[in-house]
């Protein structure tokens, strides 16, 4: 039996640098200029970007020895299921909780740069406002229109293969990595512009998810009208960055293709006056 050596969980302090330098793009609030600050953070065993930010919050002193304000960031579960802690780590959009310092070092990184997501308005420092994203889920009618919460028996039976397909689509945590990486998705500071701009891969994939559900399909015509409108699926430029950065490996390009086809059929049916 050939086996890879098992990682010894004991701290390997001798091999690990004592500190790692963080360069953080900061901003005090909307309309305020961005600036960079650097911090040297001791590397604990198992450290990730979050534990380093927690250390900085408790010790907000820059490498110049200047006492500054603690860095503001968004986080929640720290297990990559809530989507809150999304930011750009060394230029790549991702969840910062799974950005383990040891892995970054192994990849040859000597410094860690942290920047807020680029497509959402900055609230402060690394904390951005993703309200537009949630708003687009509302426009997409991304729900199953049930009759109500009183007991009406079970839902429809489902083949395991169909469940598997819906399950992966349903793991989307509205983190916005796919939007950040998309060349077509534009930053819109003004909420009035939201419905004029490309909605991006995640929302298109949610349309697919709910169109595939037997009860959810009741709203399929309305969802496809939305997908056929300005900012809908035809705005996709096929860069395919979305699928590369999705932390849940959701087949976003397949969803875009499926909804693109569905919109074409929907339009032809509309032209001939046939119902979906």
């Amino acid at each position: 039996m050939t086996t890879a050596p098992v990682t010894n969980p004991q701290p390997r302090g001798a091999q690990r640098p004592r500190t790692i330098r963080f360069r953080i793009e900061r901003c005090d609030g909307p309309g305020k200029p961005a600036r960079w600050e650097a911090f040297d953070v001791p590397v604990e065993p198992g450290a990730n970007v979050i534990s380093c930010l927690q250390w900085i919050a408790a010790n907000p002193v820059t490498i110049e020895g200047k006492r500054t304000t603690p860095v503001v960031w968004d986080s929640g579960c720290l297990e990559e299921v809530c989507g809150a802690c999304t930011m750009r780590v060394n230029g790549r959009v991702r969840q910062s909780c799974t950005a383990l310092i040891e892995n970054l070092l192994a990849a040859g990184v000597t410094e860690v740069t942290l920047q807020p997501m680029s497509k959402f308005p900055v609230v402060r420092d690394l904390f951005v406002d993703r309200q537009r994203f949630f708003n687009d889920l509302k426009r997409a009618k991304a729900w199953v229109p049930i009759d109500g919460t009183y007991n009406l028996g079970a839902g429809p039976r489902e083949k395991p293969a169909d469940q598997a397909e819906r399950y992966v689509l349903s793991t989307c945590m509205t983190c916005g990595c796919c939007l950040d990486a998309c060349p077509q998705y534009k930053k819109e500071e003004d909420a009035k512009e939201w419905d004029q701009s490309f909605v991006g891969a995640a929302v298109i994939s949610q349309v697919r998810l709910f169109n595939e559900h037997p009860t959810g399909a009741a709203l399929k015509p309305e969802r496809l009208d939305f997908m056929a409108s300005i900012g809908g699926v035809s705005d996709c430029g096929n860069a395919q960055n979305c699928v590369k950065v999705c932390p849940k490996e959701i087949p976003l390009t397949e969803s875009i293709a499926a909804i693109g086809r569905a919109v074409s059929i929907h339009r032809i049916k509309q032209f001939f006056g046939v119902r979906d």
């Binding site: 049930i146 007991n151 559900h213």
Partner: peptide
């Protein structure tokens, strides 16, 4: 009945080969 309701809401519960 809570499971049934969640099922109606579209929760992708794992399924048996017969779809239960």
């Amino acid at each position: 009945q809570i499971i049934d309701l969640l099922d109606r809401m579209g929760v992708p519960f794992n399924r048996t080969q017969e779809g239960y």
